[in-house]
């Protein structure tokens, strides 16, 4: 969220002694911030990969029952939560489209709806933790369950924080049809968080 600063910095060019940096040459059609975010997501996928490796070893290699005896996972509530999170991806896309068309009302509503849905997801998740009836120290499976869903929850939180920043700027009148990276880039992250949830949901709750 900062690369633009260098390119934008040549306004003082040619003014007396003050000499800013030369304009960097763009050697790729890909935008720097988008590329940075995509690479960051690759990294994030690998973090989840580490946790899924643990899942694989404890569930498949150890041959432990899933979930552990005496533990139960609320598939339905989590399914509802999945729907909530997936719909937040739709509202996110709506906000971005609105930004592209200069529709300020749509931008505000889209961002607010996304924030609201994301927070709902987190609240339901925390509520689920409270009522589950087992703790991470009950079994290795419980450790994996809390580890994976907790890691994902942390990512929802990070995503919400980024979106909150973008929302503040939306309400302060930033972003135009030509300049909406501030929405687009956190949006990519948000979609990643959603897709990752589907994978977590399927492997933890369903399978």
């Amino acid at each position: 969220m900062e690369a633009a600063s260098i390119e934008a910095a040549d306004t003082s060019h040619g003014h007396g002694d003050h000499h800013g940096p030369p304009v960097a040459h763009h050697s790729s059609t890909v935008d720097a911030q988008t590329l940075g975010m995509l690479l960051f997501i690759v990294s994030e996928i690998m973090v989840f990969g580490g946790f899924f490796t643990a899942y694989f070893f404890i569930r498949i290699v150890n041959g432990n029952p899933w979930p552990a005896e005496g533990e139960e996972l609320p598939q339905l509530i989590a399914g509802f939560n999945t729907a909530v999170l997936l719909s937040s991806s739709v509202t996110m896309h709506w906000a971005l489209e609105a930004a592209k068309h200069g529709n300020r009302r749509g931008m505000k509503l889209g961002m607010l709806a996304t924030l609201l849905l994301g927070s709902t997801f987190l609240t339901v998740q925390i509520n689920e933790y409270v009522h589950l009836g087992f703790a991470p120290y009950n079994s290795a499976q419980a450790s994996i369950f809390y580890g994976l869903t907790g890691l994902h929850g942390a990512h929802v939180f990070i995503g919400l924080t980024l979106l909150l920043f973008a929302t503040v700027r939306v309400f302060k009148g930033h972003f135009t049809p030509d300049e909406h990276q501030g929405i687009e880039v956190p949006g990519i992250y948000w979609h990643f968080v959603d897709v990752m949830w589907v994978i977590v949901y399927v492997s933890v709750y369903i399978l």
Binding site: T53, A54, I58, N62, P65, N138
Partner: peptide, 27 residues
């Protein structure tokens, strides 16, 4: 926080996996 990723002594059917650490670490 008392998780049991690597605890092999917690009981049959709910134990962690010790070799898993090495796979993740060396990857």
């Amino acid at each position: 926080l008392g998780f049991h990723f690597f605890d092999a002594t917690i009981g049959e059917g709910r134990q962690g996996n010790v070799v898993m650490y090495q796979h993740v670490f060396w990857f």
